[in-house]
Simulated assay, not measured.
Amino acid sequence: MELLQLQYFCKVARLEHMTKAAQELHIAQPALSKTISRLEEHVGVPLFDRNGRQIKLNAYGKAFLKKVEGALSLLEEGQRELIDMAGMERGRVMLATTTHKCFSDMIGSFLSVHQGVQMRITQASPEEKVQQLQSGEIDFCITFPPLEQDGIDGVNILTEEIMLAVPLTHRLASRERIDLAEVAHEPFICIKEGNPFRAMTDAFCKEAGFEPNLVCEVDEHSAVGHFLHAGIGIAFLPETLGDKVSSMRLIRIEKPLCLRTYQLAWRHDRYLSAASRTFRDYVIRYFAEMQRQAEMRP
């Protein structure tokens, strides 16, 4: 059994598609198929159910995948620990995050201070982030809502207020604060279903005693401003994105309390390199200082 066989097996097992796996591994599909077949011969059982060109991980494969992922993760951690001990590199950090401006600013600030650190940054859904943490593909993820799972440690780094955005010509544009129930019959511009932000804002509305009157769904916050400017409806926006859209008014929601909290999470039993530990400490300090400065503003 060869290390390369196990790495190839993990890729095929995650994608359950031989051609896509071969493309991502940058090898020919027949060569990958032959490698998987040799691995199955070695372990003595089929790891995939095959139906024509379709493959699906079977019960043997699922059991084997857990062990292989654990073994590969331990090997990688061992290598990183030895590299740290020998001082052979200045460090690498693997992070899954969101498109939130606060986090891109923080990452840029970190790299300007620690120029020798290499970072690999990806975007992923909350479910994908958990899988990547558990498999050892990433060192950290920044996510909301905070993860509460065995084997995952984390620290809350940013709590931001969710506000109500209305066009400048809206009847409520002169208001500083509002109870959410007051806009129960207003048309809403919302993030599409399946996004954690949408689930959160739907919960806010439910707590206020109504379901949002949906007139427009968008993929991301950057699209909200266009529809606000057109006067189509009102929308929820994080306070940290308020300066992105000029043609609107942000109103604080007094009731219910509308907040979201981001967490920096990592696997409890995963070895963190010196670069990773430095990054974690920097993130915590960065957002603590941001919070301190926010509290000092009038």
Rank of each mutant, 00 (worst) to 15 (best):
residue 149 Q to N: 00
residue 15 L to T: 07
residue 90 R to Q: 10
residue 149 Q to K: 15
residue 61 G to P: 10
residue 157 I to N: 01
residue 16 E to Y: 05
residue 118 Q to C: 06
residue 95 L to A: 08
residue 183 V to E: 00
residue 170 H to S: 05
residue 27 I to T: 06
residue 140 F to T: 11
residue 136 G to H: 04
residue 290 M to W: 04
residue 220 E to H: 11
residue 185 H to M: 10
residue 259 L to T: 14
residue 219 D to W: 05
residue 217 E to K: 06
residue 170 H to V: 02
residue 284 I to Q: 09
residue 265 A to S: 15
residue 14 R to W: 11
residue 262 Y to H: 14
residue 113 V to H: 05
residue 114 H to W: 09
residue 109 S to T: 03
residue 212 P to K: 10
residue 159 T to W: 00
residue 262 Y to M: 03
residue 46 P to T: 08
residue 292 R to N: 12
residue 138 I to R: 09
residue 101 K to N: 01
residue 192 K to F: 02
residue 296 M to H: 14
residue 122 T to W: 12
residue 244 K to M: 12
residue 10 C to T: 13
residue 70 G to V: 10
residue 61 G to C: 06
residue 205 C to R: 03
residue 190 C to P: 00
residue 240 T to F: 05
residue 240 T to H: 11
residue 179 D to M: 06
residue 196 P to T: 12
residue 67 K to W: 01
residue 168 L to K: 15
residue 241 L to A: 09
residue 235 A to K: 06
residue 191 I to N: 07
residue 90 R to N: 13
residue 193 E to V: 12
residue 246 S to E: 13
residue 127 E to I: 09
residue 262 Y to S: 10
residue 288 A to C: 02
residue 278 T to E: 14
residue 107 I to K: 02
residue 61 G to E: 10
residue 161 E to F: 07
residue 226 H to V: 05
residue 260 R to M: 13
residue 202 D to S: 05
residue 203 A to L: 07
residue 262 Y to D: 12
residue 23 Q to H: 14
residue 289 E to V: 15
residue 96 A to E: 11
residue 131 Q to P: 00
residue 259 L to S: 07
residue 278 T to K: 11
residue 31 A to V: 09
residue 156 N to H: 08
residue 189 I to E: 00
residue 142 I to T: 04
residue 55 I to S: 03
residue 294 A to I: 05
residue 195 N to H: 15
residue 257 L to T: 11
residue 13 A to V: 00
residue 116 G to R: 04
residue 81 E to G: 08
residue 148 E to T: 12
residue 54 Q to R: 13
residue 5 Q to K: 01
residue 58 N to P: 01
residue 55 I to G: 01
residue 88 M to Q: 12
residue 149 Q to I: 14
residue 84 D to Q: 05
residue 65 L to E: 10
residue 80 R to D: 13
residue 265 A to Y: 08
residue 33 S to N: 09
residue 163 M to I: 10
residue 83 I to K: 13
residue 18 M to R: 08
residue 102 C to N: 14
residue 40 E to R: 09
residue 134 Q to P: 03
residue 73 S to V: 11
residue 240 T to N: 04
residue 245 V to H: 03
residue 244 K to A: 15
residue 89 E to L: 03
residue 2 E to W: 14
residue 16 E to A: 01
residue 281 D to K: 06
residue 8 Y to N: 12
residue 234 I to P: 02
residue 218 V to P: 00
